[in-house]
Structure formats: C-alpha cells, structure tokens
Amino acid sequence: MSESFEGRKAVVVGGSSGMGLATAHQVVAGGGTGVITGRDQDKVGAAVGALSQNGKAWGITAELTDRDQVDTKRRDRASGASTPAPSYRRLRCRARSSTPSRHNRYRSAW
C-alpha cells in the first residue's frame, strides 16, 4: 500500500495473523491506527504488541460469526466501555474461504 493513513483508523478483520496482520502493519507504518480483530486473545495481544512498536494499535477479540459476541462488542462500543472511538476506514482482507452456511443465518439481519 502506498496510501497514507495519517490521522486515520483502519479496522482489519482477521488482523492477528497472515495477510491481515501484514495489512495492519502497513496501516500503522503509514501513520494510521490499526484496529485488528481476531478470535484468539493471545494472538491478538501479540499482534497488538508488535504493531504498537511502530504506532498506535488496538485489538478486539471476538468470533464474528457468533451473533451474541458481535452484539456484545457493539454495545461495548456504543456505551464507551471500550476504545477507540468510532471513525474507522474499513479494509477487507480475506485470507481464507468460509462456508456459506456460517453466514446464511445472519442474512436476514441485514
């Protein structure tokens, strides 16, 4: 990425490893704040530690295919119980395929 992320936040889903982590590193190197999500708390913590050496980084641990966890994280954000503040730029990094059945049950919610 050659784009500057100065003064911006980017949420990278699956940012605790692989291409997502590489993308988050580029965001932080470009002057932005990297907000990563992942399912494994230890991996998210390690990734945030590595990213924080070069700039601002935050981590969110959740299984995003679990509707209850998504609702909990959303409520936490709305209540101010967690940071950073909402003003994100979304990037999409799809490192693995998923089966349609995991997502079909949420289709009606959108």
Rank of each mutant, 00 (worst) to 15 (best):
A47W: 04
G55N: 06
S108A: 14
Q53H: 00
M1L: 08
R39S: 14
R107D: 07
T33D: 05
S16V: 07
T61L: 08
V13I: 06
G15N: 04
A47G: 13
D66M: 02
D42R: 05
G30Q: 03
T72I: 09
G34S: 15
S4R: 09
C93S: 06
K56V: 10
G34L: 06
G59K: 02
Q41L: 11
S4Y: 00
V48G: 02
S82C: 14
G38Y: 07
R94M: 01
K56E: 14
G20K: 01
Q69N: 12
S108H: 10
R74K: 08
K43F: 06
E63A: 12
A95I: 01
R105A: 14
C93I: 01
N54G: 09
G80D: 07
V11P: 05
R102M: 06
R90L: 14
R77M: 15
K43N: 15
D76N: 10
K43V: 11
D40G: 12
S16M: 08
V28R: 05
R92H: 05
I36S: 12
T65Q: 00
R90I: 15
F5L: 08
D76H: 10
T83W: 01
R8W: 04
T83K: 08
A10I: 09
V70A: 10
G45W: 01
A22T: 12
R105T: 10
D76I: 03
E3C: 05
Y88A: 13
N104G: 09
S2L: 12
I60W: 11
F5P: 02
A78D: 11
K9W: 04
G14Y: 00
C93H: 00
V48Y: 00
T72A: 15
W110A: 14
V35T: 10
S108F: 11
G30S: 05
L64Y: 00
A22F: 05
V27D: 01
S16I: 11
C93T: 02
G30Y: 00
W58S: 09
A57C: 02
G32H: 01
G59N: 03
Q69C: 13
A62N: 04
H103R: 02
F5Y: 09
Q69R: 08
H25R: 13
A85E: 15
P100R: 04
T33Y: 00
L64D: 01
Q26A: 15
V48N: 01
V70L: 08
C93G: 06
T23Q: 06
G30E: 00
S101C: 07
S87D: 15
F5H: 08
T99A: 11
G80W: 01
T23A: 15
E6R: 11
Q53A: 11
A109R: 09
I60S: 07
I60N: 06
G55V: 05
R67W: 07
E6M: 08
D71H: 09
V11T: 06
G31V: 05
G18R: 10
V11Q: 04
V12I: 13
P84V: 12
